[in-house]
Simulated scan of single mutants.
Amino acid sequence: MVGITGRMKSEEEEAKLRKRNEELERELRKSQEREEQMRRELQKAWERLRVAEEAEERLCSQLGELEAESVHQAREYNARLLSLVNQLSRATIQSASAC
């Protein structure tokens, strides 16, 4: 009789352990799925960061080109303005000497 009771306890414990093992395996699978999902999200974020960095580089390059162009245009404008001032001065001098 003691042998049967001991065997029943052993079978109950084995069943409990099997059930606990199944629960742990389910939890492990869920954890692995969450980990994979996080890995995919991290990869997407990394890709968005790479695209943003490339866009920033292009914008900086375009900004540099625009700055160089604006400096060039400002110098041309200044030269044209000085030329017009000189022409006006000569015209004023000629007009004054004609009087």
Rank of each mutant, 00 (worst) to 15 (best):
E13L: 11
E69F: 03
R26V: 07
E67S: 02
S61L: 08
Q43L: 14
S97P: 00
R40L: 02
R90L: 14
R18E: 13
T92G: 04
I4Q: 13
K16A: 07
Q43V: 05
S31F: 01
Q62C: 06
E13I: 12
E33S: 11
A79S: 09
Q32H: 04
L59M: 06
K16Y: 10
E11P: 04
R90C: 14
Q37L: 09
L84D: 05
Q37K: 10
T5P: 03
L81C: 09
L63V: 01
E25I: 04
H72L: 09
L84R: 08
N86D: 15
T5C: 10
Q43N: 15
S83M: 13
A45F: 02
Q37T: 10
L28C: 04
R18C: 09
E27Y: 00
C99D: 15
R18A: 14
L88N: 11
Q43W: 10
A52S: 09
I93T: 06
A15S: 09
M38T: 03
E76H: 11
R80T: 05
E41S: 04
A98R: 11
L42V: 08
A55R: 15
R50H: 09
L17G: 07
A55F: 10
R50S: 12
E57N: 05
E65S: 06
L28Q: 04
V85G: 02
L28A: 04
E54D: 11
L49E: 15
A15C: 02
A45Y: 09
W46I: 11
E54C: 01
E47V: 11
I93A: 03
E36N: 02
V2P: 01
R39V: 00
A79V: 08
K9H: 09
L42H: 13
A52D: 06
K19G: 07
E47F: 11
R7W: 15
E65G: 02
R26P: 01
N78Y: 15
M1D: 07
L17A: 14
N21G: 09
E11L: 07
Q32S: 07
R18G: 08
R40W: 03
R75Q: 12
V85Q: 14
M38L: 15
L24I: 07
E65D: 06
Q87Y: 01
A52E: 04
H72E: 13
E54P: 00
E47W: 10
I4K: 10
A96M: 04
R75I: 00
R58P: 00
L82F: 04
I93G: 02
T92Q: 03
E54Q: 06
L66C: 00
G3C: 14
A91C: 12
L66S: 03
K16D: 03
V2W: 13
R58M: 07
S61K: 05
E54N: 01
Q73H: 06
A91S: 11
K44M: 15
S61W: 06
S97I: 08
